[in-house]
Write a protein that binds this DNA or RNA. Structure first.
Length: 628
RNA sequence: GGGCCCAUAGCUCAGCAUGGAUAGAGUGCCGGACUUCUAAUCCGAUGGUCAAGGGAUCGAAGCCCUUUGGGCCCGCCA
């Protein structure tokens, strides 16, 4: 137990007081207090004001008096504030010990919300015809962070990446290769995914605009992609897998890994659609139109004033959204699994095994990557389609919230950055576009950051070896990028600027990582093995207690982040922890105090801080170096 | 025409779910702190009609309604 212990103690006591007063069903809050108002606050007096026909202040006073006779181990005293709040002061001698010894446990920060149940997180899912750009990175980092948090909350998480290898975007580069003779080997050793995106895709789509007659070729290729035996499909398969390899390299470099890759082409060929189509008809979730503009189509009725959505065209083929329905149902385990599984040919960096679906029956391995719940990370431009899927899944499964769409706003380019890419936006931010070549690649951003952080590290540590500098710069670059993508709320647009967005100061990962390095140095120089057998009551300075309090809030933050599927909660927590430590660092010396007991106690605090920050950062996929 | 999201300090954002105390950070600008456990740091100063208007409430940045400004979505494309 952690800081939550004192909250629980207070809540229990208040409930007891309420029942003694024959009051019940009051949903009062017990929360960490704002600075200057003790350690814990409750709004209970406000809520009772009407019922008791007294002012909140009077009630708080009355409750505070009653509280003093409650059994307490963690509360020193309660106090009524003139505003009406009931504030509590912690017995820090006891609470210090509780929090700091807890922090050494492997389970520190764990909350049991998932209870071991399975949950699918699908993210990334980028068309395999181009390299990942900074907009995709937001999706990837949100998805990866959420899956780490859910794991901490005791879910068994299956991370999926959906590979749309039979769509229009893939058809476009295939047309480029087959009709415009693009070389299959990129020039000057360019990464294959970059080459396909920057050269083949952009240039091919330019040609469509110049010659509308090419549209037929494109349609034909698209059709052949769905037929697994066609030469085009086989060729496309080799191309998309090479692009995918490049994309995965980018993800792995950012410490993002997966459990399984699901290929759209295989979903199409598996016949899952036919099964779900029958089910939709049976359950009368779709209707056949006999007249009107959608005559001859199967549609889902729009709610209210919304338009009907065509699912099956009048020529009998399924639309884009229709392809998503069987996949969503498969993720929830609602369909018999038509796939076998094989290991992906390359290994992931953290040795997590990556599987991929296959329809090859020669060496059948079955696996289960479905989940009782599903979180699909897609940007909010897809909200409408995702709403339809969510509602359908709610009807298939008894638990209506089993499927959820985690939406987020897009990443746009600042006008300055757009200008460097050759687009004058008249001072406005610009939407990225893979087709128009208007984007900033993830790999380039990483490279820029790496150079920058290398320079910074060299400046500070001229004595370091190149490999040491390289590994620090890698951790800091990845951290910076990941933190930048996660620190604000999902519904805020991120305007990416090549210079401004890559700051290493202030509310950034390097700030937090630097704090970690400071702690590491203290422990290193102390030449002592950390121990928790110390006199905790020696820690009583305000900034010490503040740091301890922050350390004790870890599991509450994990709970908050999980319940709200909100990764930024953890980002803010890491930042708060670092701020608290820096304040401690400035004001309290740890070493050379000529006071062994105090030194031991402070070393214990530094150790706890380091352990908890490391765990919290790991939820963000960020590692901190011991020196930087 | 219908739907979703955003609006808080010069700029970028927390706080809003669950109304209550003094609306917080970062950044910028100005000033200060390296002979010290690492200055990618810290301290101070500056900076706010919480977009506007209305409503319910003892009490609103937060809840409800309206308006304005901005972004996005609404194809038998994917």
């Amino acid at each position: 137990m952690t800081f939550k212990s004192i909250l629980d103690e207070i809540e229990n006591n208040l409930n007891k007081i309420l029942s003694d007063l024959f009051l019940s069903d009051v949903q009062f809050s017990v929360e960490p207090a704002k600075p200057g108002f003790g350690d814990v606050s409750s709004n209970i007096a406000f809520l009772l004001a009407k019922q008791l026909k007294k002012s909140p202040q009077e009630i708080a006073k009355m409750l505070s008096e009653k509280y003093s006779s409650c059994r307490n181990t963690l509360v020193l005293k309660s106090e009524s504030h003139p505003s009406g709040y009931l504030n509590f002061y912690a017995n820090w001698d006891n609470l210090n010990q509780l929090i700091l010894s807890e922090s050494h446990l492997e389970t520190c920060g764990d909350v049991d919300i998932g209870n071991g149940s399975t949950i699918v997180v699908e993210h990334t899912s980028v068309n395999p015809n181009k390299a990942l750009h900074i907009g995709h990175v937001r999706n990837i980092i949100i998805g990866d962070t959420i899956s780490r948090i859910l794991q901490k909350a005791k879910y068994k998480v299956n991370v999926l990446n959906y590979i749309d290898d039979s769509g229009l975007q893939v058809a476009d580069i295939i047309v480029g290769f087959t009709h415009f003779d693009y070389d299959q080997e990129p020039p000057n050793g360019k990464k294959f995914d970059h080459y396909c995106g920057d050269n083949v895709y952009v240039k091919t789509t330019e040609k469509y605009e110049a010659d509308p007659g090419l549209e037929d070729i494109r349609k034909n290729v698209l059709k052949e992609l769905e037929d697994g035996d066609s030469e085009i499909a086989k060729f496309a398969d080799t191309i998309t897998r090479r692009v995918l390899a490049g994309q995965l390299e980018t993800c792995w470099n950012l410490d993002v890994t997966y459990d399984c890759l699901n290929f759209e082409s295989q979903i199409i060929r598996s016949g899952l659609w036919d099964k779900i189509f029958e089910k939709l008809k049976e359950m009368k979730l779709i209707e056949f139109e006999n007249e009107g503009k959608n005559k001859g189509c199967w549609v889902i009725r729009g709610e209210g004033k919304e338009e009907d959505k065509v699912i099956v065209r009048s020529n009998g083929t399924a639309t884009y959204i229709a392809k998503d329905i069987p996949y969503a149902a498969w993720k929830l385990g609602l369909l018999a699994d038509p796939f076998n599984y094989e290991k992906y040919p390359s290994e992931q960096p953290n040795s997590r095994i990556l599987w991929q679906t296959t329809l090859d029956k020669t060496n059948p391995i079955s696996k289960n990557f479905t989940g009782e719940k599903v979180v699909t990370v897609i940007d909010s431009r897809q909200a409408r389609l995702q709403k339809i899927i969510t509602s359908l899944m709610g009807k298939f499964k008894s638990t209506p919230d089993a499927y959820s769409h985690l939406g987020y706003e897009s990443v746009t380019l600042s006008s300055e950055t757009a200008k460097t890419l050759g687009l004058d936006t008249d001072g406005k931010q610009a939407q990225m576009s893979g087709r128009k070549g208007l984007y900033v690649n993830a790999d380039s951003v990483y490279d820029i950051l790496k150079e920058k952080t290398k320079d910074e590290t060299k400046k500070r540590h001229p004595e370091m070896s190149d490999s040491e500098i390289d590994s620090i710069a890698h951790l800091v670059s990845v951290g910076t990028l990941r933190y930048e993508m996660i620190k604000q709320d999902l519904d805020k647009i991120i305007t990416f600027d090549l210079t401004k967005s890559l700051s290493l100061e202030g509310d950034t990962a390097p700030y937090i990582q630097y704090t970690y390095a400071r702690a590491s140095r203290i422990l290193e120089k102390s030449n002592r093995t950390p121990t928790i057998d110390v006199n905790f009551s020696l820690l009583k300075e305000k900034h010490e207690l503040d740091l301890i309090k922050n350390i004790g809030l870890f599991n509450l933050q994990v709970r908050d982040a999980t319940n709200n599927l909100s990764p930024k909660v953890i980002a803010r927590y890491c930042h708060d922890l670092a701020v608290a430590f820096n304040s401690f660092y400035e004001k309290s010396k740890v070493l050379d105090l000529n006071n062994v007991d105090l030194e031991n106690a402070r070393l214990c605090l530094v150790t706890s801080f380091k352990i908890v920050l490391e765990k919290a950062l790991s939820l963000l996929g960020i590692k901190a170096p011991d020196k930087m």
